[in-house]
Computed example of a mutant assay.
Amino acid sequence: MKLRKNILIVDNNCELEQIVKGPLLKELKDSELSPIVVRAKDGAEAAIKSENQKFDVVLIDTEVPRLMDGGFVYGLLSYKNTQDADLIVVSNRDLTELPDSLKNSKHFKKPVSPQELISAMIDVLNAQHHGATNKEPAATQAAAVKYAVDVRVINAVIKATMSVLGQFGVTSVKMEKAGPKSPHDPLLGEVSSIVDIKSAAFQGFLAVSFDKGSYLEVVSTMLMEEQTELTPDNQDAVGEINNIIFGNAKSEMSNFGVQLTVPKVLIGANQVIACEKGSAGMLIPFSTSRGKFYITVAAFPVAKAA
């Protein structure tokens, strides 16, 4: 009986799948391995596919949409279905320019030789089969990047935020490039709402923070009256806004065992949230027609999670 090996290819134009799938199946036809190739067209679809299936190899084209500016690539080493996978990356960028979660991958600079790529995949699969892989253990890799945030948490909060602001009539929202951020640094923005998050393998906090311009834009549409300054009266609205955002996100996150506390409002710039040593964070910035707001996700060391 052949040993099944699941391979996720993140590739929006099918080029990598066309290069790899046929020759790989042919090369391994008479071996003890049976490769199953699954393709995702972007980072968001890769995150969804990884929720339901464990992968032994993840092959990534870093230029695909919603990959480098979303949660999937930053959660690879902590996400249960990819944390033990061997990573192979095809990119226009040098290895030093890639996120830490990709730094231990087999890296190919474009244009990539099809034969070299196929040979690398066969070497990885054979090494896994014979227990001779040179890949560092997942725990070692995780230590190198500290602790990654759960991609499902990020996606749920982004989805809820965009939906709620759209309901309030803020239609000019654009998500900008996400990236790692030290959770020990002050929060960006002047008005923030924080919730603690917890699951069996994840513990940390979420913050939605608005700068003055974006907050006044949201509050003006919410109160149906133009607001030009932050006042004690309109500052209370951040709690209501973020209660709705976190409430919407909670309905999705509860499906995979994540719990949220009641939001806490923080008024004023440069707010610092106490975090344990070794915590990691991610910042997702957004722009509106009048300013910016930010989603900050922090993950405390997984070993300390309850």
Score class of each variant (00 low, 15 high):
Asp69Asn: 12
Gly70Asn: 08
Gly70Leu: 00
Gly70Trp: 13
Gly70Lys: 02
Gly70Thr: 00
Gly70Arg: 07
Gly71Leu: 05
Gly71Pro: 06
Gly71Val: 05
Phe72Arg: 03
Val73Cys: 04
Tyr74Asn: 04
Tyr74Asp: 05
Gly75Thr: 05
Leu76Lys: 08
Leu76Gly: 08
Leu77Cys: 02
Leu77Val: 06
Ser78Asn: 15
Tyr79Met: 00
Tyr79Gly: 02
Tyr79Ile: 02
Tyr79Ser: 04
Lys80Met: 09
Lys80Asn: 08
Lys80Thr: 12
Asn81Trp: 09
Thr82Val: 03
Thr82Trp: 03
Asp86Pro: 03
Asp86Tyr: 04
Asp86Cys: 09
Leu87Ala: 02
Ile88Pro: 10
Val89Lys: 10
Val89Arg: 07
Val89Trp: 07
Val89Ser: 12
Val90Trp: 05
Ser91Pro: 07
Ser91Ala: 09
Ser91Cys: 09
Ser91Leu: 11
Ser91Tyr: 03
Ser91Val: 13
Arg93His: 12
Arg93Met: 06
Arg93Tyr: 05
Asp94Tyr: 10
Asp94Met: 07
Leu95Arg: 15
Leu95Trp: 07
Leu95Ser: 14
Thr96Glu: 14
Thr96Gln: 12
Glu97Met: 11
Glu97Ala: 15
Leu98Ser: 08
Leu98Asp: 15
Pro99Thr: 01
Pro99Glu: 04
Pro99Phe: 07
Pro99Asn: 01
Asp100Gly: 13
Asp100Glu: 02
Ser101Val: 08
Leu102Phe: 11
Lys103Tyr: 01
Lys103Phe: 05
